[in-house]
Each structure stands twice: as structure tokens, then as C-alpha cells.
Computed example of a mutant assay.
Amino acid sequence: MAVASMTSVQLGLALAVPLFAQLGALGTAGLRLAWGGLLMLVLIRPRLRSFTRQDLLACTVLGAATAGMMLFFMLAVAHLPLGTASALEFLGPLAVSLYGQGGGRKLWTALAALGVLLLTEPWHGGLDAVGLACALAAAGCWAVYILLTQRVGDRVTGLSGLAVSMPVAGLLGTLIAAPTLWSHVTWQALGIMLVLAAVSPVLPFALEFLALRRLTMAAFGTLMSLEPAIALLIGLLVLGQTPGLTSAAGVLFVVIAGAGAIRTGARESVTNGAREAATTEARTPEPRPGAAETA
């Protein structure tokens, strides 16, 4: 689910880049968020009465983090290659992965960090300052998004939490992008963005919401190291952005780190629950044949 989510995100971003000339980076992100929020409301129809105040607050903050993540990242992509922007944004999940315990997880985190270093090549000093700042801001929002998505997913059944947070993100995105949209938006652009909103963010966010119920935050954060590699590949195939040998080596490291995260990523609560159920079943004595008749 997480890999499918990342592929959908990067494909949606690559397909949205050509619209930058007409709508701008903020306008493109704002329309996607607006359509995404509307689609989630129509498809899920959340019942707000079933939410506690704390749950609604968490969903609201999650929506704000989602909006910030997408808006800042679209601005970063307007100044940086897709693979580089994704690698810098991955610093958010990488920070989350540091919360994990155990030597194995630290190894995957270190490999992922090395991969990101090779992908960005900071020693060349050629990164656009605005793009760098926006990518790092998106990274911070992504870290908050991961932490709150698991919290909301654990407390709210189904996708109802996402159906509340996404409209919040859509509203914020629309308000921020409105000044750049009114004089440029067309019916054709609205239709294209509706399709792109289904590809990203609706599908990937739903998949991530479900994946975080099955993985620890640390494992999920490390698994996200695959996203720069996926972005690099899609940037090559869709946008014609050719990576160098160093970037290819960085892809290799993040793929290895992602594979390692999958092996060590089961949530302890789920694992322990399964073990307790198995232990209880093993300890429960089976009724002896004829016991009922004897009684």
C-alpha cells in the first residue's frame, strides 16, 4: 500500500507540472487539494457526531499539515528537479524513523540518509535557495502528517478521519491559492485537476492512512525512502529529467533501506495482540469427549 501510494503521488505530481505555466505552483496545488477534499466528503460522508473534540482537533491539524506539505512541495518542484525535491522532502519521514529502536532500524535509517545525500549532492552547492527552503518546509509538514495520521487512524474507524482532514486541507489550499487562480483557471483546467486529485492526493493518502495502521511510524518513515527513487524514475520517464551516476547510487541505497524497513516494520501492538491471542488459544483446554454427557 505504501509503495502504491508513493507511485501515485509522484505520477500525479509529474502530470501536474505542465499546468504550472497556466495556474502556477500554488494554484495547481490548491485546486488539487480542493478537489481532493470534495471527493473525500462525497465518497466517505463522515459523521461528525461520532468524533470527540480531541479527534476533530487532531483531524484539523492533520488537514493543515497536509495542505502545507502539498503547497510547499509544489513550490519546491517549481524550482528543483522532481527527484531532488522528493529527496529533500524525505528528511521529514527520516526524522520520524529515528524514533524507532533497535540496531536494524538504525541501519536502514543510515542507509536512507546516505541515499538522500547522494541524491541531493550538497557539495556542489547548486541547489536553488527558494526550492531548498520550500522542500525543507514540506519535510517538516510531512513529519507532522505521519505522526498525526497514525494517531487519527488508530482512534477513528475506517477513512472517516481522512474524510475530515482532507476538506480542511482543501479549504486552506483554496484560500491560499485563490489570488493566483481567479484570472487563470478554466473549465478544462478544472476537469484535469479533478482527475489528478483522484490520482493524488485521494488515492495515496487513503493508502497511507491504511498502511500506518499496520506499520510503526519509524518503519513507515524509513519505507518512504523509496519515494525519491520513484520520483527519480518518474521524472526521467515523464519529464525527461535524466539522473547522474551519483543519483543512481542514491536510489540504490534508499531502495535497500526501504526493503529493510518492510522486514522489520510490523507494529508491536498488532504483533503482540496476535501473540496474546495465540497464547490464550493454546492455554485453553479442549473439552474432553463425553464431558457434556457426563455433566
Rank of each mutant, 00 (worst) to 15 (best):
P93K: 01
A95M: 15
V96C: 02
S97N: 03
L98Y: 10
L98W: 11
G100P: 06
G100F: 01
Q101Y: 08
R105F: 00
T109H: 09
A110I: 02
L111Q: 04
A113M: 14
A113N: 09
A113L: 15
G115E: 02
L117W: 01
P122A: 08
G126R: 14
D128K: 09
D128I: 10
A129S: 12
V130W: 12
L132R: 00
A137K: 02
A137V: 13
A137W: 07
A138V: 09
A139F: 11
L147F: 11
L147A: 13
L147P: 07
T149V: 13
V152F: 10
G153Q: 10
V156H: 02
T157Q: 15
G158E: 05
A163F: 01
V168W: 00
G170R: 00
G170I: 01
L171P: 13
L175G: 00
I176N: 04
P179I: 11
T180P: 05
L181K: 14
W182I: 11
W182C: 10
S183L: 13
H184A: 15
V185H: 09
Q188H: 14
L190T: 02
I192K: 11
L194R: 12
V195R: 11
L196A: 05
A197E: 00
L203Q: 08
F205R: 08
F205I: 09
A206P: 07
E208T: 14
E208Q: 15
F209P: 02
F209R: 00
L210P: 02
L210N: 07
L212H: 06
R213P: 10
R213A: 09
A218F: 03
A218K: 04
A218M: 02
A219I: 00
F220I: 12
G221E: 09
T222L: 13
S225Q: 06
E227I: 06
P228S: 00
P228F: 01
A229P: 03
A229E: 04
I230P: 00
